[in-house]
């Protein structure tokens, strides 16, 4: 991440936690100027935390992947553009670790933007 160094982990490390660790770094290093990096890193961190605690759903994982795409594509500088990388690469190689932590979706999940209407 960033410096080109290499980190060696054994199989006992949770890849979700690893991704969360890097996301925590990006979240606290975000300068806050552009919206996708400022808010996106915070949301991604929260979702990783939720999945890591074993409370995430398949829908959350889908959300996380969408956020990775948005933040990577639209952030102003390199920090935001690369912030999703640890999530994307752990997902590419260790997707089953994420999936094993998911819980079944509740029947309905209301997320209406009542606050956006007059």
């Amino acid at each position: 991440m960033g410096s080109g160094g290499m980190i060696v982990l054994d199989e006992t490390s949770s890849m979700v936690d690893v991704a969360k660790y890097f996301m925590e770094f990006c979240k606290s290093e975000s300068c806050g100027k552009c919206v996708p990096c400022r808010v996106g890193t915070a949301h991604m961190y929260d979702l990783l935390d939720k999945i890591g605690r074993g409370e995430g759903t398949a829908r959350d994982l889908e959300r996380l992947e969408n956020l990775c795409d948005v933040v990577q594509a639209t952030s102003l500088c390199g920090l935001g553009q690369t912030a999703p990388n640890p999530v994307l690469s752990t997902l590419r190689f260790f997707r089953e670790e994420y999936e094993s932590k998911l819980v079944r979706e509740p029947d309905s999940e209301p997320a209406l933007a009542g606050e956006a209407s007059a």
């Binding site: 919206v35 996708p36 808010v39 594509a73 639209t74």
Partner: peptide
């Protein structure tokens, strides 16, 4: 992308129109 960014703005603060 634009919609998600807009959602970021709405969820970041407390916007009670």
């Amino acid at each position: 992308y634009r919609r998600t960014i807009l959602e970021f703005l709405f969820t970041e603060g407390n916007h009670t129109c």
